[in-house]
Design a protein around this nucleic acid. Structure first.
Length: 203
DNA sequence: AAAACGGGGGC
DNA sequence: GCCCCAGTTTT
């Protein structure tokens, strides 16, 4: 089976729907999600947006006030500082709109390639690969690439897959990574692409 | 390339 | 206590 067909099978088996598309909420939620579990991220994001739904409202927020709201996501001091700073830059430099290019997004504090690419794909429907540890690990396990870090994986996957698959395969791989292709004890017995995996460690 | 950053929650 | 968690920044 061709690599592209395997990718499509992953996408079919682990579909990912992004309900929220508002660029500001996607951006801030993704910053909150860094080094944090989904459930806790969601609690933090809901509490934050209930009080501060836009960058304009966040301009007046006190850092200490954000601590309590976003605490469940962890690293709350650092994140509170970044969220306020991001809001300032968006309002003052980008006329209140989240920028829609990789270069501009990367100028925001706490926004790296992974976070920027999520915004590009989810909110602006642009082809983008947000390569995190899951996508990195799985791409290498499958034998799609031999890369040292997520950055290299991003460029490897861009060459391997057509643009219209970048966003979908990314999200689906994360889901796959959390449900089946786990870092430590992968559930190879229920893996839908077991036959196409070149990993020596597979069981 | 590696270390620092710096916290909640589960076990 | 120790580990993981859709990372980013600094050294």
């Amino acid at each position: 089976m061709h690599l592209e067909e395997v990718a499509k099978r992953i996408i079919k088996n682990f579909p990912r729907n992004h309900k929220e598309k508002d660029p500001f909420k996607v951006l801030i939620t993704t910053v909150l999600s860094q080094r944090s579990k989904d459930e806790n991220t969601e609690i933090a994001a809901n509490r934050l947006f209930e009080k501060y739904p836009t960058p304009q409202t966040l301009l007046k927020a006190k850092e200490e006030d954000l601590y309590e709201l976003i605490k469940p996501a962890g690293l709350y001091r650092q994140k509170a500082k970044r969220i306020i700073e991001i809001s300032k830059i968006i309002v003052n430099k980008f006329s209140g709109k989240v920028p829609d290019t990789l270069e501009e997004l990367l100028t925001l504090p706490g926004v790296g390639r992974k976070t920027a690419n999520i915004v590009l794909y989810v909110s602006f429907s642009k082809p983008a690969l947000a390569v995190d540890t899951h996508v990195h690990r799985i791409s290498n396990r499958l034998g799609w690439c031999k890369t040292k870090n997520p950055n290299e994986t991003e460029f490897a996957l861009m060459k391997l897959l057509p643009k219209d698959l970048w966003g979908p395969i990314n999200g689906s791989m994360v889901k796959f990574g959390k449900n089946v292709c786990l870092p430590r004890n992968p559930k190879c017995d229920i893996c839908p692409i077991y036959d196409y995996c070149k990993w020596e460690g597979k069981k």
